[in-house]
Amino acid sequence: MDTALLLLADSRLPAGGHAHSGGLEPAAAAGAVTGVADLAGFLRGRLATCGLVAAALAAAACAHAREHGARWDLLDAEADARTPSPAQRRASRAQGRALLRVVRGAWPHPALAALGGDPHHPVVLGVAVAAAGGGPDRAAAITAYGSVTGPASAAVRLLGLDPLAVHRALADLAAEVDEVAARATTAAAGGWAELPAASAPMLDLFAEFHLQADLRLFES
């Protein structure tokens, strides 16, 4: 993979990803995730739902940027329609804004200006991959990967889990991450209306609960 794409996948990218737990913090607060086994199930569920949807949106955005498309408002609406939780929409746009700042500086691309000031994270990531020379398959792979690595590292910090055990769980998921990325890439070659829309009711609940919590380490 190109170094530019590795930079986009790197958690050290200064795009604020460390401030979001992907629902892991409220799940931990509710006692739903206490150890590595629960975490593995949580990550698998997140990957197959939010992860797949985000990866498909990123792949679609990447393809659209490469084709010099201009229907960004419609892709934004397709992302909104797949994100019923207002807390999750806010978190996606907050991460999108932060990533947009990084990408505008590092990988200028005409599509970035067309995204507006408040884009969804996977859409920005897809355009960023196009700007960095990658295709929809790479955009899907980076997005699917990030959908599990973010909550996994949050779990290490929040629950004091053994980082080696958590990384073994991630390694066990690697083939599933690849499979989700491949499905997302295939889906993004079709119409936007038919893109995956897999939902996770518990994640929606956790996202909304999180805003009510008195003490929060992560924004989402």
Partner: peptide, 9 residues
Amino acid sequence: IHGGRAVLG
């Protein structure tokens, strides 16, 4: 997938 903590709880 759906038996884990993220989907149906």
